[in-house]
Design a protein around this nucleic acid. Structure first.
Length: 282
DNA sequence: CGCCCTGTTGGGGA
DNA sequence: ATCCCCAACAGGGC
C-alpha cells in the first residue's frame, strides 16, 4: 500500500508511541521477513532494544535502536503496521511487545515486505544510498537535478519516476498523478523532456506527494477508493484508477495503458502521446 | 468450483 | 541501460 506519503503518515502516527520505548519481546512468525543472509534481525537481537527514533527515507521506515543498530523496514505492496489491534490479524508476520504494555504488529498478506538490521550509521547510510536517490520533498530536488538525471535516457518518463535510485519514494500511483498534473505522457522518453516539462514535472511530483501527506486523517487503508462516496480521496487521485471516466480537467475519457508492466492511467488529451522517435537507421 | 488476470514493490537475470 | 519475470496471496470476472 505505501508510497512516500503513506509511509510518512505511518511514521508520524507511530513515532510518538515508539520513541523511547523498549522492545521487551519480539516474535518473528515469518522467516521470509528477514531474508538476506545472514537473517537479521533475529528475535534475540530485537529483545531488549530501545527505540531511539523512527524515521523515513524514501519508502523505508528507519528505526534507530540502542547500541547504534538500525532496523530498516520496507512494507512493499501490502505491509501494514498495526498498533494494539483488537484481534490478531491472519497475516501477522512480526509482533513487538513494548515495555509500556502496548503491542505493535506487522501484517503482510503477500510477504513481500522486508526487515534488515544493520550496525552503525555508516552501514545504514550505505544500504540506503545504494538504493535511493534524492528525496523529492527537499531542496535537493531541483529541475536541474531532474534534467541531469534524465539526460540521455530513452526509458519512458514513468519508468524514470519509478526508479528509486533517482528519486526516492514515488510509486505507481503518484507517478501517474504527477505526470497528469504536469501534462506529460507516461511513455515520453525521459531524456526528451523539454525545459518547461522538467519544471512542471518537478513541481507536480512535489505537489502530488504533498497532497498525499496532507490527506492524512482519512483511513490509509481506503486510499485507493477514489470513486463513489468515499469522499476524502476523491480529489486526491485525479487520474489513477479512473479508466473510462471523464478527465477532471478536460472531460476526455481516461484510458488505461501498460507502461513498464504497470497499470497506467492517462488522459491523452491533457497528456499528448509523444511522436514516435525516428530511428537513425530506419 | 476452477481458471485467469491484476496489483501499492523491488531485485535479479537476460 | 532497459526490459521482463518473479516473489505470495486475495479478490474479481467469467
Amino acid at each position: 500500500m505505501p508510497e512516500l506519503p503513506e509511509v510518512e503518515t505511518i511514521r508520524r502516527q507511530l513515532a510518538p508511541a515508539l520513541d523511547g520505548r523498549t522492545i521487551v519481546d519480539a516474535a518473528i512468525l515469518d522467516h521470509r521477513w528477514t531474508r538476506p543472509d545472514p537473517p537479521e534481525p533475529t528475535e534475540e537481537q530485537l529483545r531488549g532494544a530501545r527505540i531511539v527514533s523512527v524515521g523515513r527515507v524514501g519508502k523505508y521506515l528507519v528505526w534507530e535502536l540502542s547500541d547504534d543498530r538500525h532496523l530498516l523496514m520496507h512494507l512493499r505492496m501490502t505491509g501494514t503496521l498495526l498498533f494494539d489491534p483488537d484481534t490478531e490479524p491472519i497475516h501477522t508476520r512480526v509482533r513487538f511487545d513494548l515495555d509500556d504494555g502496548h503491542r505493535l504488529v506487522y501484517v503482510d498478506p503477500r510477504r513481500f515486505g522486508t526487515g534488515h538490521l544493520v550496525y552503525g550509521a555508516p552501514a545504514r547510510d550505505a544500504y540506503l544510498a545504494a538504493r535511493l536517490g534524492v528525496e523529492p520533498l527537499t531542496p535537493e530536488f531541483t529541475t536541474h537535478y531532474l534534467r541531469r538525471a534524465a539526460h540521455g535516457r530513452t526509458a519512458p518518463v514513468k519508468a524514470f519516476l519509478l526508479d528509486q535510485r533517482r528519486i526516492a519514494g514515488v510509486g505507481n500511483i503518484y507517478a501517474d498523478e504527477a505526470l497528469f498534473r504536469a501534462g506529460i505522457h507516461p511513455l515520453r522518453p525521459a531524456g526528451r523532456l523539454t525545459g518547461p516539462q522538467l519544471d512542471r514535472l518537478r513541481d507536480a511530483v512535489e505537489d502530488a506527494l504533498q497532497a498525499g501527506i496532507d490527506a492524512k486523517g482519512a483511513s490509509i487503508d481506503d486510499f485507493r477508493h477514489v470513486d463513489g462516496a468515499r469522499g476524502s480521496f476523491q480529489d486526491l487521485f485525479l487520474i489513477h484508477l479512473r479508466a473510462g471516466e471523464p478527465c477532471v480537467n478536460c472531460g476526455a475519457t481516461v484510458r488505461k495503458i501498460v507502461v513498464g508492466g504497470r497499470g497506467t492511467y492517462v488522459c491523452e488529451r491533457c497528456q499528448p502521446r509523444p511522436r514516435p522517435r525516428q530511428s537513425l537507421r530506419g
